[in-house]
């Protein structure tokens, strides 16, 4: 297999402006993926800036508003989705919880990606005994249900946010190890036959300049897929009471709180669960899109067939040509 030019154009990160434009057009063409991206951006915005905007509304207990139902307009915007058993408005609480949940999830994924990819790259690049040991360890952790691991670790170590992040990250690391190693193995056989080694480039240089850019897109795709899973795992832990504890607030905790009032105030559990669903769904949709967009063989499926949004984009940037 003679690769005349390394496959950098296909998988180079979006540093090239033409390529970024092409990505945007493809995204605009897929309605679901763009809706998902918008939702996530909105969510991120509210998670970061929301609590400042609402100024502590989420802890303002108003016993007169206990278990207030949603959609009753006269109570004002914060009470749009109702209030909980202590009279705290749900909508602002959702936003604050978003911050915690998203913060933990993103933190976990980031940590797992860094550690896992590093280990995976080492395992793939150097192979041998070290590589074998890493893979064996990864298999071991991977065969273990995350909940079980979290259960026992958080029992012993107290459920602080930090510990939750560490435990969840440990359960996700094997996936990144596997993916990174597989990618490295594939690239390794391409590049080494090529000039890189023969012109005396050192290992570190090869890793940094050649291998990482190729491995990165796949890792991002896996990371976005993992975001949904981590979110669900963290929510499950909070729901069961072994994750984040009050006064911290996460969506899972809110669902658990509402469990006692199921018959009288169903909205207490409904909205937070819906929030989890929508966020996980968006993350899944986006990662599905990314998987197709990053794979040059499948990318033709996303070529815009004159959808309205891609036509809008084309009108906005008429001078730029398609990167194909």
């Amino acid at each position: 297999m003679t690769d005349k030019t390394p496959d950098t154009t296909a998988s180079a990160p979006a540093s090239n402006p033409r390529r970024r434009y092409a990505l945007l057009t493809m995204l605009a063409g897929d309605r679901f993926a763009s809706a998902a991206a918008c939702f996530l951006l909105l969510l991120l915005f509210f998670a970061i800036f929301g609590p400042a905007l609402i100024g502590g509304a989420e802890v303002r207990m108003n016993l007169g508003m206990r278990n207030a139902p949603p959609f009753s307009g006269e109570n004002g915007l914060p009470y749009l989705l109702g209030a909980d058993s202590l009279g705290r408005p749900i909508l602002p609480r959702l936003m604050v919880a978003a911050r915690t949940t998203l913060g933990i999830s993103i933190g976990v994924v980031f940590l797992a990606m860094c550690v896992g990819s590093a280990l995976g790259i080492v395992a793939g690049y150097y192979g041998g005994r070290l590589g074998g040991a890493i893979m064996r360890g990864a298999d071991l952790v991977m065969s273990f249900p995350s909940l079980l691991l979290a259960v026992i670790v958080l029992y012993v170590l107290e459920p602080f946010v930090f510990n939750v992040v560490i435990v969840l990250a440990i359960t996700r690391i094997p996936v990144f190890i596997r993916v990174a190693r597989a990618e490295v193995l594939e690239v390794k056989q391409r590049l080494f036959v090529e000039a890189a080694r023969s012109i005396g480039a050192g290992d570190w240089r090869i890793l940094r300049l050649h291998i990482t850019p190729v491995v990165l897109p796949t890792l991002f795709t896996v990371a976005s897929l993992d975001l949904a899973n981590v979110m669900l795992a963290e929510s499950s832990l909070s729901f069961l009471g072994i994750g984040v504890q009050p006064p911290g607030v996460t969506w899972g905790l809110m669902v658990a709180d509402g469990r006692n009032f199921l018959t009288t105030a169903w909205w207490l559990s409904f909205w937070p669960g819906l929030a989890i669903l929508l966020t996980a769904l968006s993350a899944n949709l986006l990662s599905n899109w990314m998987r197709i967009a990053m794979d040059p063989k499948l990318r033709w499926r996303l070529e815009p067939e004159a959808t309205r949004s891609s036509a809008i984009l084309r009108r906005l940037f008429p001078a730029r040509s398609q990167a194909r």
Binding site: S236, V255, G273, I276, L281
Partner: peptide
């Protein structure tokens, strides 16, 4: 199904 929290 893959995005729904089972407890919910």
């Amino acid at each position: 199904a893959a995005s729904t929290p089972d407890f919910w």
